[in-house]
Amino acid sequence: MRHILSILLENEAGALSRVVGLFSARAYNIDSLTVATTEDPTLSRMTIVTHGSEDVIEQITKQLNKLIEVVKVIDLNESEHIEREMMLIKVRSTGKEREEMKRMADIFRGRIIDVTDKTYTIELTGTSEKLNAFIEAVDRTAILETVRTGASGIGRGERILKI
């Protein structure tokens, strides 16, 4: 099953490679990983999307917690949460395709952030499934380039991950 893990870790050189090294050394899956410094510059916040059986996810959580630089780990799946991913997608848009592409971006609440005679670059935010749906919805041959951030997640309501 797919799980989305939120990790608070020391913002130190090498911390990221320890996390990544752990996943490869123990043959765990990483579907996506995002990381950046938090409002507290000594801490980084990481979101990892992974999949595996419940036993494997339990081990992943424990092994992450065992890393010295990891402060806290939560499995967002354990309660309600919100997740967002951003995609920048460059599409071919010439002639009557142009209108169609614009309409499609609107339907998905995307924003066109760069325009040339032949292309649009669209910024799209949402769940990973929504981004997948957009890719499915447009003509495959029109897609010139995509770049995705991977999912970031946060608990719903008052639930917070802090030290």
């Binding site: 036993d55 339990e58 081990q59 424990k62 092994q63 917690n65 065992k66």
Partner: peptide, 11 residues
Amino acid sequence: VDPSSIAKRVK
């Protein structure tokens, strides 16, 4: 003492 040793190979 190590939680990750528990339930690693057997439940």
